[in-house]
């Protein structure tokens, strides 16, 4: 190949590379000019057949040409990479392509969120039957027969001594019978109350029970676990207030209020202008419960707490009618 031919080749390569519009074109030209079958490669390969004086000159020319083409290739590559793609215009405001997803029920979400927090604190999950023996629902939990405390819970009966559990507390008794302390359990579940259905009450509702029995468990531990829970669930600056209360299966018992997260404690309609929201009941497990399950109340102490799931979800999401949870209107379900 003559020097003129090399010059022609260079001119052609320069023009073609300058007009490249795609990476594919650039690659094709690289193969054409620098590939194994290209003219330049042929020249460089044929050098040894040339006269010694000519060999040096051609080699110099060819290498120069190769460098130039490499440079143009690099430039062309950069240019096409930077150029906008010449495809149909994208309307980035169109929704993405996906199959519409469903959602979890708000009760499930609330239970999951709460269980996760306690799970992280070392609580295990346990469950129990919804149709329950009166003994587990009342007797073993220190509700004497014919005691007014039984009226606090309006009970559905399915047989003389079989009820629909009115709280998740029977799970305490069932787990205590199965295990030896330390026992640290969180027990969510469905409970029942024989009560007319209204915006504030439904015959079915969810509760979540937690309890811990070990050597030297104190009321201070109870305050600690609930404070840690409330601050994780409702926010780090939420305050707690423990008020003496009464439950047959705990003594001392307490009702726990949190500072209203809707008005930051200033008082609003939801907290009835008190700045506090009642969220759960708790206490130290009554020695009579330990006696019923054969734990030594002198050796072990423990705490228990229980909260209503719908109530917490209603507060958190400002829902004013509990029936919405069980009506399952998709326009409601899709909001959470």
């Amino acid at each position: 190949m003559s020097q003129d031919e090399i010059a022609d080749l260079l001119a052609e390569a320069e023009e073609l590379l300058e007009n490249c519009a795609s990476a594919e074109e650039v690659e094709a030209l690289r193969v054409k000019y620098l590939g194994r079958k290209s003219a330049l490669t042929a020249i460089l390969r044929g050098l040894k057949e040339l006269d010694a004086d000519k060999r040096v000159e051609v080699a110099r020319e060819a290498n120069l040409a190769k460098k130039k083409i490499e440079k143009w290739l690099a430039e062309a590559k950069q240019k096409v990479a930077a150029a906008p793609r010449q495809v149909t215009r994208i309307d980035h405001t169109l929704p993405g392509k996906r199959y519409p997803t469903g959602k979890l029920h708000l009760i499930t979400r609330t239970v999951d969120d709460i269980v996760d927090i306690f799970y992280g604190m070392g609580f295990e999950v346990a469950l129990g039957p919804e149709v329950e023996e009166e003994y587990y629902n009342f007797g073993a939990l220190n509700f004497p027969p014919d005691h007014p405390a039984r009226d606090m819970q309006d009970t559905f009966y399915v047989a003389d001594d079989v009820v629909l559990r009115t709280h998740t507390s029977p799970i305490q008794v069932r787990e205590f019978q199965k295990r030896k302390p330390p026992v640290r359990i969180i027990a969510p579940g469905r409970t029942y109350r024989q009560e007319a259905i209204s915006a504030r009450a439904y015959c079915v509702f969810y509760q979540l029970e937690g309890f811990y029995v070990d050597h030297r468990v104190t009321f201070a531990d109870l305050k600690g676990v609930l404070t840690a829970f409330a601050q994780q669930y409702f926010g780090a600056d939420v305050k707690l207030r423990f008020r003496p209360s009464f439950f047959p299966f705990t003594e001392p018992s307490a009702e726990v209020d949190i500072s209203c997260f809707l008005c930051q404690g200033r008082g609003c309609r939801i907290c009835k202008h008190t700045g506090w929201l009642e969220i759960l009941g708790c206490g130290m497990i009554h020695p009579n419960v330990f006696e019923a399950v054969g734990y030594d109340a002198e050796e072990y102490t423990g705490y228990a707490f229980g909260m209503g799931i719908e109530r917490i979800a209603m507060l958190k999401h400002k829902i004013d009618d509990i029936r919405l949870f069980y009506e399952n209107d998709i326009r409601f379900l899709s909001q959470f």
Binding site: M121, V125, A220, K223, G224
Partner: peptide
């Protein structure tokens, strides 16, 4: 009740089954 301390450390077992 407000004067009772609030303990956030706890003992108990390590095994937590689901």
């Amino acid at each position: 009740y407000e004067k009772i301390p609030c303990h956030t450390e706890t003992g108990g077992g390590l095994v937590t089954s689901r």
